[in-house]
Every structure is written in structure tokens, then in C-alpha cells.
């Protein structure tokens, strides 16, 4: 007898109904389930642990206040992610921090592609730890939005449409951010290894 896989949408529905019915422990369960996603979004956007903790609390208090308005039109994680993203965005706007760099022109993309070599074996070069440290530093210096998009895609494994729902940006914009940011990080690796352009 084959087991039917759990339907995430029906799990969402059951959890939301339990929370709205004020079932004991239901809201705590919702927070536990999504606090990781919330932290990743907010911490990547604001890059300050104290602020991130406060903003995570604000996010879940907003979720608590407005859960009755959730219409199940998107996955619950996308809806909560959207609340977290908006809370972080407002925080950065109050501090007048831009979330993206000035644009790389299309010519800049092409020149990056041309300048990055393909023949160097990065696995063999340089100590793993040192390279890992360089990459972490490079990721830390990324603007908030590309850094958050990378995290949602690689770490939280959200799809591009899901990330589009969280951020309110078009799927093509999300894809462009992923492409450019990963290409720039690859250039960082090559630069660290002293590969001539």
C-alpha cells in the first residue's frame, strides 16, 4: 500500500485553522516552523543580530494580528516570508539604506563573463578554509536584496516564483539577481586566486 505524500497546502490550512481557533500551542508551533525562514530573510537584509531579533518578533506579531486575512492563495511560508521581507525593508528605508547597488549594465555582465577564466581548477588551489572565508566576506558585502535572494534560493531552497511572492519582485528580476550575484562571486574567487583577465 503506497503512502500518499503530505500535501503542504493542507498542512498550512490545518495549522492556520488551529491558530485561528486559539488551540493551545498552535501559534508557538507556527512560530517554530517559520522562525528560521524569518531569521534568514531579516538577518540577510539588515545584517545586525539585535535588530534582526526585534524585527523577527515584530514580524510574528504582525502575522498573529493579520492571520485571519490570509486567504491561502499562496503557501503560508511565502505569506510569512513576505511579512518578514516587508518588515526588514521598512527598517532599511527608515535608516535610508539602499537594498541594491546601481545597476550593472548588460555590457558589464558580458565583460564579467569574458574576464572569468574556465581553465583553473579551484578545487586544487588554495586552502578550503581560506577560500570559504573570502567568499563569506564577499557575501557579507553584497547589497541586502541580492544577499537575501541568494539565501532564500540556496539555503531555504525556495523556488524563483516563491521568492517572487516573498519580495513582490518579478521572477525575471529574481533570476537576474541570482545570475549576476553568483557571477560576481565567481569573479571574486578568480580574483583571489590571481587569475589574469
Amino acid at each position: 500500500m503506497t503512502e500518499t505524500p503530505a500535501d503542504p497546502r493542507s498542512d498550512d490550512r490545518a495549522l492556520v485553522q488551529a491558530v485561528l481557533a486559539n488551540a493551545p500551542g498552535a501559534f508557538a508551533r507556527l512560530v517554530r516552523e517559520y522562525q528560521g525562514l524569518c531569521w534568514h530573510i531579516i538577518q540577510r537584509m539588515v545584517r545586525n543580530p539585535e535588530d534582526a531579533r526585534e524585527l523577527c518578533q515584530d514580524t510574528f506579531l504582525k502575522v498573529h494580528q493579520h492571520l485571519h486575512q490570509y486567504r491561502h492563495e499562496s503557501a503560508l511560508k511565502s505569506w510569512i516570508g513576505r511579512v518578514a521581507y516587508t518588515v526588514a525593508l521598512r527598517h532599511l528605508e527608515r535608516k535610508r539604506i539602499a537594498i541594491v547597488d546601481n545597476v550593472l549594465g548588460e555590457d558589464d555582465d558580458l565583460s564579467l563573463l569574458d574576464s572569468i577564466g574556465d581553465g583553473r581548477d579551484l578545487e586544487a588551489d588554495c586552502a578550503d578554509e581560506e577560500m570559504h572565508g573570502h567568499l563569506q566576506a564577499a557575501i557579507d558585502t553584497l547589497p541586502p536584496l541580492p544577499r537575501t535572494v541568494l539565501t532564500l534560493y540556496h539555503l531555504d531552497e525556495l523556488s524563483i516564483p516563491e521568492i517572487a511572492q516573498v519580495t513582490g519582485l518579478a521572477a525575471g528580476t529574481i533570476k537576474s539577481h541570482l545570475f549576476r550575484t553568483r557571477l560576481k562571486l565567481r569573479e571574486t574567487l578568480e580574483t583571489r586566486l590571481g587569475v589574469p583577465s
Binding site: H40, P49, L135, L155, L189
Partner: peptide
């Protein structure tokens, strides 16, 4: 390597 670096920073504070 880039994927591994992004995934390494997964602690929830």
C-alpha cells in the same frame, strides 16, 4: 563553493 558558502551561514540567532 559559492553554494556551500551561502549554505554554511545557516545559524538562527
Amino acid at each position: 563553493r559559492i553554494d556551500a558558502a551561502i549554505r554554511a551561514d545557516d545559524a538562527v540567532g
